[in-house]
Design a protein around this nucleic acid. Structure first.
Lengths: 228, 228
DNA sequence: CCCACTCCGATTGTCGACAATCTAGGCGAA
DNA sequence: TTCGCCTAGATTGTCGACAATCGGAGTGGG
């Protein structure tokens, strides 16, 4: 599972994880004001650790802080999402290219099995998109790991890129794109098996580009609805 | 100038900037332990703001924190630098491609003037590599701005990517690569003027790749020296 | 001689309280 | 009525002190 366990570390780390989870899942609405005292009480800790947690989340771009005016949950407008997907296309494409030469056969085989699980899950419960989405994230993260590039892993991994999960969570409710996505994943794995980095990159870029197109259309529809 | 002014914000922000500067310039050695009480005293503030600053720097990857064991300045080993340059190649290449279609004619003209300044500076004082390095960073950042992609700007800009400045600072002492770099910059601007995104991306990637090769050799030499 | 244990100093993690700053609402004058 | 000012409340920024934890010196046993 990608969700980090409660963690035995400092209270600030715990708070950061809990806050991140609340934000990603939408429990804390976008643009919502985050009151330090209130959150500290809810988490049963002082304001010190909580402030550190907010700093941490600011670095992850999950909240925006304004001096003397508090912190607010970031708002994911269309432009921001578009920018994110653009960067993802470049970074994950690169990850794929590297992974094609760096991953071991065992890792690739594991990736293939991961997809088998996904397929089974999809067949079992058509509606449960959530777990697929998490699994999908896991797929992408495994490839990032396969690149053997630590900076890339940080940028695409759990720590730095929770924004991704946030926008996924927001858009995964209606998303019925699981089947073509799965097929594209299979194509990517096939390219990795053949150690064809260029092809793997191309497929990954196309996969992400398609995902953005799909999400973009969904946003358009939502905006129409909310406007009507 | 790219170096942010002392900033009127919170003490934590001031501390973060000062610490970042000290780390980037090498005033604080790599791997050095950062004592909270000592630094707080030196900056004339309590430990609270300083801890927030350390959290911030951790997000920037300038320091590494270990629970109950304090923070240390990150160490830039060869692998880390290699990873950074790899990611840069992807991100700045993308920035260049976007900039070719997004930048205004005025911005491109300004970029060209910037290079004129560089050239003059180089001719005037051959040894002063530092200012060139800062200017070079400025060149790259201006292109990132030209991409109109906020996330890209954050990742390549001052806030998130001080690691870059750090490794530049470390390697810019002996670097005599200013002239070919300048010429490559000119080529990139020419591609931008022609609105040729693909070419601009290619040139930028090649430029960064060459920079890494040059730095890599330098590191090899240093290691030989220190081994002898 | 080497290893493990213990205790102590130092450092980090946390809290509560105080000061500085911003925001909202009421009040008075044009 | 409307605009601007001013006070009051709430919220953030900061500090100092206490508790928890870690690293290392010193000691005793094998």
């Amino acid at each position: 599972m990608l969700i980090q366990v409660p963690e035995q570390g400092t209270l600030a780390d715990v708070a950061a994880h809990r806050l991140a989870h609340s934000i990603v899942t939408g429990e804390l609405a976008q643009g919502q004001k985050l009151n330090e005292a209130e959150l500290a009480e809810r988490f049963g800790m002082g304001r010190g650790p909580l402030r550190e947690a907010l700093r941490h989340l600011e670095g992850m771009r999950l909240v925006k802080r304004i001096p003397n005016a508090g912190a607010r949950v970031v708002v994911l407008d269309r432009k921001t999402l578009s920018d994110i997907y653009g960067v993802r296309e470049a970074l994950e494409g690169m990850a794929c290219r590297l992974a094609a030469t760096q991953m071991t056969d065992e890792e690739i085989a594991k990736l293939s099995k991961l997809l088998d699980n996904h397929e089974e899950q999809i067949k079992k419960v058509g509606g449960k998109v959530y777990s697929q989405s998490e699994g999908d994230l896991d797929f992408h993260f495994q490839i990032a790991r396969g690149s053997r590039n630590q900076m890339l892993m940080d940028m695409l991994g759990s720590e730095q890129y929770q924004l991704l999960r946030m926008c996924r969570y927001r858009t995964s409710r209606k998303a019925a794109r699981t089947k073509p996505a799965l097929q594209q994943h299979r194509q990517i794995v096939a390219a990795l098996e053949q150690r064809d980095g260029e092809l793997a990159e191309l497929l990954m870029r196309r996969h992400i580009h398609g995902a953005w197109k799909s999400i973009s259309e969904m946003i358009d529809k939502e905006e129409e609805e909310s406007a009507a």
